[in-house]
Design a protein around this nucleic acid. Structure first.
Lengths: 216, 216
DNA sequence: TATTTAATTTAGACAAATCTAAAATATATT
DNA sequence: AATATATTTTAGATTTGTCTAAATTAAATA
C-alpha cells in the first residue's frame, strides 16, 4: 500500500518517462513543486519498496511493480475526468485539479463500476488513452500538429497540455476534439501555423501547435 | 483550509455531539482509533484554529465555524453514498469505507454538481438526512424501533449503525428501508422484539432494534 | 586534460500527527 | 471528607515528508 505522496511520485515518474528514460531528480522536483533534496529522499524510499530502480546520480526508472501502480493511478485520473465532463457537465479545462484528488481513492470496486457506468471509455476529455484494468493502453497514433506540413489535413484527437488557460484558448479558437483541420501555411518568421477550421483561417503559435494532437 | 485529519476529528465530534455535549476525549479516541494523548494534542490545535471550544478536562464542543465544516463533510459523505448506490449499484453495506475517502475531496463545484446529478436527494441509503449547502437538515422525525410498544406499526426509514455485518443481517431478514412493520410482542426475558413483516413473524434482538429507525 | 558549472546527494533540522509512560485532575466510593 | 479509580494531560520520542546549506559527483568547456 502506497501513500498519497508516493503515488504522486510514481505518477510523475511515469509521465516523465515518456520523454526521457531514466528520469532526473530535478525534473521530478520541478513537476512535484518541491526541492531536489526531497526528491532524493523519496527515491530512496521508493527503491526500498522496489517500486523504482534508482542509482545515485543516474536518475530513476520504474520497476514493473511501480509501473503498474502508476498506470492504475493514470487510469483512475482519466476515468474520473470522463465522469466529470460527461455526467457532471464540467468543462475540459475544469477537471484536472479535481481528478488529481479523485485518482487516489483506493477502492478497486469503485473503479470497475465507474468504468462500467461510463460505458468503458477509451479516451479522456483531452484525448488521452485510458488504460484497461491490466494496464494496457489502446495505442492511438497521434502526431503533433506542429509536425504537419502545408496542405496536410487531419482531425484533432488530443492535447498534451491540460492547463485551464491553454484549453480555454483552444476553445475560443474552436479547436476542440473531433474538429477537422487543414494546414494552409507555416509562417517562416516565427514558425507559427495558419490553418483552416470550419472554413475560417486562423493562426496559432508554434507553442500551441506542439500541444495539439492530430490523427489522419 | 483543514487537513484530512482535522476534518475527521471535526466530523467525529459532530456525530458524538448528538448524544452528549460536550464530547469527551476518550470517546473521540475510540471512534478515531487512536490514543487519548493524540486527541488532546489535536483538540488544542483545533481550538487554536477556533474550530472547537476546548477546556482542559472538560471535553469539547464545536464552534459555529467547526460545525459548518463538519456538516459539509457529512453532506459530502452522504451524497457520495447516494451516488454509489444509485449510480454504481453498490449495496448499502458496501458504501461506508469508500465514502470516508470521497468526503474529503475539496471542490465545491463537484459537490453542487453531484447534488444536481443525483436530483437533490434528501436522505442517504441508510435513511440519514442530507444537509443542504447551507448546513440545514430536513428534520425527519425518527423513533427507534426499540421504543415501540406491542401492536404499534411503522415504516423503516433509517438505521443508526452502518457496518456491513449489521446491514447484511437486516437485508437477510428483509428489514430494508420503506418496509412496513408491526410489533407483535416484546419478549420480557431479553427485551427482544417480535415483529410482523411481509406477513412473516420474525424476532430481532434489542441491540438490533435500537439501530432501526421508524416513522409512523 | 584541467577547470568551471550544473546536478545531485548528505547532514541536520523542522512540522504534523502519532505514540508510551508518567503526572495531574476529576469522579466515584466508602 | 478521604481515598480509590477513571479520565485526561504533559513530556519526550517517533515517523513521514519536507527544508536549507554544504559536500559530492557528473557534465560542459576551455
Amino acid at each position: 500500500m502506497q501513500s498519497y505522496t508516493e503515488e504522486n511520485y510514481l505518477k510523475i515518474i511515469f509521465h516523465l518517462s515518456q520523454n526521457s528514460n531514466p528520469v532526473q531528480t530535478n525534473a521530478i522536483a520541478e513537476k512535484i513543486q518541491t526541492k531536489a533534496a526531497s526528491v532524493t529522499d523519496m527515491l530512496k524510499k521508493l527503491a526500498d519498496k522496489e517500486l523504482v530502480n534508482y542509482v545515485k546520480y543516474q536518475g530513476v526508472t520504474l520497476t514493473e511493480k511501480g509501473k503498474l501502480t502508476a498506470i492504475n493511478i493514470v487510469r483512475k485520473h482519466r476515468l474520473w475526468e470522463v465522469f466529470l465532463v460527461e455526467k457532471l457537465n464540467f468543462k475540459w479545462d475544469e477537471v484536472h485539479e479535481v481528478a488529481e484528488e479523485l485518482e487516489h481513492i483506493k477502492s478497486t470496486l469503485l473503479v470497475e463500476r465507474l468504468d462500467e457506468f461510463l460505458e468503458f471509455p477509451k479516451v479522456d476529455p483531452h484525448g488521452d488513452p485510458i488504460p484497461d484494468q491490466y494496464g494496457n493502453f489502446a495505442d492511438l497514433s497521434f502526431i503533433k500538429l506542429s509536425k504537419l506540413k502545408a496542405n496536410e489535413k487531419g482531425t484533432i484527437t488530443g492535447v498534451s497540455e491540460h492547463s485551464s488557460p491553454f484549453l480555454k484558448h483552444l476553445e475560443k479558437l474552436g479547436l476542440t476534439l473531433g474538429k477537422k483541420i487543414e494546414i494552409s501555411e507555416i509562417i517562416d518568421f516565427d514558425g507559427s501555423v495558419e490553418l483552416l477550421i470550419d472554413n475560417n483561417k486562423i493562426n496559432i503559435s508554434r507553442e500551441v501547435a506542439k500541444h495539439i494532437l492530430i490523427s489522419k
